[in-house]
Amino acid sequence: MDNLQTEIRQLIIDALDLEDMTAEDIDPAAPLFGDGLGLDSIDALELGVALRKRYQVRLDGDDPSVKRHFHSVNTLVELVRQHSERTA
């Protein structure tokens, strides 16, 4: 699933205007928010919209597991993979 990981890193760069970064700059295991990549709450909303458009992943903001899914690139890869397996 290396392709999906690269795809999601590129999705983050494109959706969040991280104009000076490349996919390789994003550590797939590092936190996306706060200390790691440093994304903010607007990025979280934007990323939710991008994931819905691209992978039809629907997220409920009240669901406590959302925070876990949004932790890093790797957890997002896992989320998208689980979703595609469920809907396959």
């Binding site: 969040l16 205007d17 607007i42 990025d43 909303l45 934007e46 919209v49 819905r52 458009k53």
Partner: peptide, 10 residues
């Protein structure tokens, strides 16, 4: 019928 970008709105 597309979703509006939260960042653009803000």
């Amino acid at each position: 019928g597309e979703e509006v970008s939260p960042a653009a709105f803000s």
